[in-house]
Computed example of a mutant assay.
Amino acid sequence: MKTSNPVLSRLGQAAERERAAGYGQAPGQPGYGQPGYGQPAYGAPYPTATGGYPASPPAVRPMTVDDVVVKTVTLLGITGISAVAAWNLIPASATGAAWIGAALVGLVLGLVISFMRVANPALVVTYAVVEGVFVGMVSKFFESFYSGIVMQAVVATFGVFFLMAVLYRARVIRATPKFTRAIISIMAGLFAVMLINFVLALFGVNTGLRDNGAIGIIFSLVCIVVASLSFILNFNEVEEGVRMGLPQRYSWTAAFGILVGLIWLYLEVLRLLSFLQGDD
């Protein structure tokens, strides 16, 4: 299971360890009955259950594209419900605290999930809830200044997402090894710049990177382009994960990646729209 994508490599290795530990595959799936895939060697008897009856080999159903779609829709629904609840239930006096608290908790959860070697549905769902609070507070803030901006940002975000899906499906944009390395490197660079900008802002240093000016608009446009292209990596991860026969629960990891991209794109679109409306 070799791939140029580090995420897939990590998940593929975890899946191999599961098989080596005794997790088999369902009959009819690739690798079923083959030595080294959680099955006995040819000619060796299966272990027997109590009473001497043959025990069925443990089965792990591989994930499918439908699994990822269902998990992604589920996470989006949870995030949306959490955002609406936060918007309506958290008082204005606690908006700042909820905004910052949710952002920090979401960052920690996101890093934990990203570096875990095993998919954890509970953590992914918790992340969706926390990010829903964060998105709800940010959206409420922008909507208070620019009426209708939230709906515009939502429509634009999903419009870009489906456009990237069509381009990937048509193979107009492909996740080649060079493309993958470039996007991952640029994303890492952007997050580093945003983190440095945040730290500088705490000490009263304004770089203009997130202000309504030429620098801020250009930076937001760059982020939007990179966030959009990151979906190509997500789609490729799903496609390759299905091909590699990763266990079904890894669909949560794939859905998590898509959710992160959608939230990032939404926030950048929201910020850019505020810049453009602020010029009127």
Rank of each mutant, 00 (worst) to 15 (best):
T3V: 11
L8Q: 06
S9R: 15
G12I: 05
A14C: 09
A15T: 06
E16V: 12
R19N: 01
G22Q: 02
G24K: 00
A26N: 10
P30T: 03
P30G: 10
Y32D: 05
G33W: 06
P35C: 01
P35A: 15
Y37G: 00
Y42T: 12
A44E: 15
Y46W: 14
P47G: 10
P47M: 04
P54K: 00
P54E: 09
P54Q: 03
A55Q: 13
P57L: 13
A59H: 08
V60D: 13
V60F: 01
V60P: 00
V65T: 12
V65L: 11
D67F: 02
D67M: 06
V68N: 05
V68S: 08
V69P: 00
V73F: 11
T74D: 01
L76T: 12
I78L: 14
I78S: 08
G80H: 05
S82V: 07
W87V: 03
W87N: 08
N88F: 14
I90M: 04
P91F: 01
P91Y: 02
P91C: 08
A92I: 13
S93V: 12
T95D: 13
T95P: 00
W99C: 00
I100K: 08
I100A: 13
A102C: 01
A103P: 00
V105L: 13
G106W: 02
V108L: 13
G110C: 02
L111S: 07
F115R: 12
V118I: 14
V125N: 03
V125T: 08
A128P: 07
V130L: 08
V135C: 09
V138F: 08
K140Q: 14
F141A: 13
F142L: 13
S144D: 12
I149C: 06
V154W: 04
V154L: 13
V155D: 11
A156K: 05
G159C: 02
M164H: 03
A165K: 09
L167Q: 03
A170H: 09
A175W: 01
T176M: 07
K178G: 10
K178M: 14
K178N: 14
I183A: 04
I183C: 02
S185I: 01
S185F: 13
I186K: 00
I186S: 01
F191Q: 13
A192G: 07
M194R: 09
L195D: 01
V199I: 14
L202A: 11
V205D: 05
G208P: 10
L209H: 08
N212D: 14
I215C: 00
G216C: 07
I217R: 10
I224C: 05
I224V: 11
A227L: 05
L229R: 01
L233Y: 02
V238N: 06
G241I: 02
G245I: 07
L246P: 04
Q248G: 11
S251E: 01
S251H: 03
T253R: 11
T253L: 11
V260F: 04
I263L: 10
I263P: 00
I263M: 09
L265A: 06
L267E: 08
R271K: 12
L272Y: 06
S274R: 10
F275N: 10
L276F: 04
D280V: 09
D280G: 15
